[in-house]
Amino acid sequence: MGEVKSTGRLATMLGGLGLVAGALMIAGSRHWLPTTLPSYPPTPEAGEARSAPRLPVPDARPGQPARRIAEDLIAPPPLDAAGIERIGARPPLGELGLASPPKTAMPQDWRETLLYRPVAVSSAVFEAMGRRVIISGAVDIDPDRTCSFGDAVWPCGQRARAAFNAWLRGRALKCVLPPDGDRFAIAAPCRLGKQDVGAWLVANGWAMATPGGLYGKAEAVARGAQMGIFGPPQ
């Protein structure tokens, strides 16, 4: 019995030494094995449907930043349609920025005629090449007319004629006239380059618009801005 116990103790000691030696050999090696291995989702079998990846649900609160939801896809920040209000377009600052009024039907013998070296005789009337033309759609301001602004009274008619002449600077006007228009004064639409002459005069307050004419809004703008005859002495 004593011999058997001695043999068992010896085997136990040798086993312990073997475990220590094995541990020392592993510690002295250059590479360590991971204690735990990463887990991967099981590969679906042939014919088994793959489930689509679950994307994050966007936050409905306004003001959230854009975020990446896939490798090549960036979702814009969510918008709350209830907080969006559509407003109308800003009104134009004046009639000068609007498109030229549509051309009115003229008799077949009326045609565009260039009138060189025009001279204003009043705020909406000029003479050139033996013709006397009244700008259609504009109400002329008589040169003898005076205007009042507050306690001041000033010769607005003379100032309106001077402003028209200063704007013309002798440049040629293109007007739609009949062939025999040199025998009498005639109301006609005219342009200086691409600018409608009547629109310029009324929008700057140097003439008034005919009732129900094309330049009613232009006159309202000039009155509101106190321009030309509607403003202080100039």
Rank of each mutant, 00 (worst) to 15 (best):
L115M: 09
R117C: 03
A75Q: 12
Q108S: 08
G228I: 06
E85M: 14
S123K: 07
R223Y: 12
P41R: 00
L214Q: 14
P41E: 11
W32C: 10
L93G: 15
R161Q: 13
R61D: 05
M1W: 07
L10Q: 07
C190G: 05
A124T: 10
P41W: 13
R161E: 02
G205W: 07
M13D: 00
V125H: 09
A162G: 00
E85N: 15
T7Q: 08
Q195N: 02
R67C: 01
L10A: 10
P91H: 11
D182L: 10
P65L: 00
I141S: 03
G47A: 09
L173F: 14
L168M: 02
G212P: 14
P211M: 11
P78G: 07
P155K: 05
G205E: 06
P189H: 13
G28A: 07
R223A: 13
P155S: 11
A21R: 05
A124P: 07
A128R: 08
M106Q: 11
L177W: 00
S39C: 03
L115N: 00
G231E: 13
A209V: 14
A128M: 00
G47Q: 05
M1L: 01
P76Q: 04
F164R: 05
Q108H: 09
P41C: 08
A81Y: 08
C190S: 10
G157M: 01
L177K: 09
D182K: 14
A187S: 15
L96Q: 02
A124H: 04
F164W: 02
W110Y: 12
E219N: 08
R61L: 06
M25K: 06
L177T: 03
W206V: 08
R86N: 14
A70H: 04
A187W: 02
